[in-house]
């Protein structure tokens, strides 16, 4: 039950509270570039969610088995549990993202022709989407930098975080596209037309999403209410609050 509630908290956190676009400001290029029409924005969001999940799965496998300190592969090769290959993370993740996008494109082209047509140019564009690299790095932070094995993220946590991050991206870009469609009919001052008003809109949207801050605490209380209440009665200063909470872990 606690595991499930952790997953729900991770998902909610990645999708709404720590929205990739509106909280961390990653993946801004497609957010500004492809948010002219709602249907295109939704297509882009779906493509990102699709690729981000695959990239997260691959990067978790690589981080867990190869890159982290004391990873099984390096221990077998060098018999030295202190070898840390996490210096390679950026280059490996970029490598993995680029090849998985290529692979997905070929696969979709062969077996899902209508989907391939719907994605169109977006699929190769995702290769350079920093939201995906960000998700990989976030996963690395929770796999290789953690000393306590109990707090280390498993493959399921990573996948849930990445997929709900993609869903959060879709929500943000679709809302933005809806606003921009309405904005076309507005009398915007000449100096602000185009990129100016778009960035201001994005900023206000980010402010609006700040309203989600703290939702996870309330939800945590509801989900884990009984055990937490019992725990805090026994030990008021227990650091259990921060145990597996992604929000406060950063």
């Amino acid at each position: 039950m606690e595991y499930l509630s952790t997953l729900i908290l991770i998902a909610l956190s990645a999708a709404l509270i720590n929205n990739f676009v509106l909280h961390y400001f990653v993946g801004i290029c497609p957010f500004i570039g492809v948010s002219r029409r709602v249907d295109m924005a939704f297509g882009m969001g779906c493509a990102v969610t699709f690729v981000i999940s695959i990239a997260a799965l691959l990067s978790w496998l690589l981080t867990y088995y190869v890159l982290r300190e004391g990873a099984p592969l390096t221990v077998v090769l060098t018999r030295d549990p202190t070898v840390d290959l996490s210096i390679l993370n950026y280059i490996v993740y970029i490598f993995v993202i680029a090849s998985s996008v290529q692979f997905v494109e070929m696969y979709v082209r062969k077996y899902f022709k209508p989907l391939y047509k719907a994605f169109g140019v977006f699929l190769p564009l995702i290769t350079t989407n920093c939201a995906i690299l960000f998700a990989c790095l976030e996963i690395m932070k929770h796999v290789s930098g953690v000393s306590d094995p109990a707090q280390m993220w498993g493959v399921l946590e990573s996948l849930v975080m990445a997929a709900s991050g993609g869903i959060g991206f879709t929500i943000a870009i679709v809302i933005m596209a809806g606003i921009r469609e309405e904005l076309d009919h507005c009398d915007v001052p000449k100096v602000l037309r185009g990129a100016g008003i778009t960035l201001i809109t994005a900023g206000i949207l980010a402010l609006a999403f700040m309203g989600f801050t703290g939702v996870d605490r309330g939800l945590q209380k509801v989900l884990q209410g009984r055990d937490k209440a019992a725990e805090s009665a026994e030990a008021p200063d227990a650091s259990a609050q921060t145990s597996r909470n992604w929000e406060t872990g950063i």
């Binding site: 390096t74 210096i87 993995v96 692979f103 077996y111």
Partner: peptide, 25 residues
Amino acid sequence: LAGAIMLVLAILMAWVLGWANKTFH
């Protein structure tokens, strides 16, 4: 070790993509 792992990864990915290119042609 880092170089070797990158090399192995590159060969692996190249092989997978090459295979995919042929299979999904």
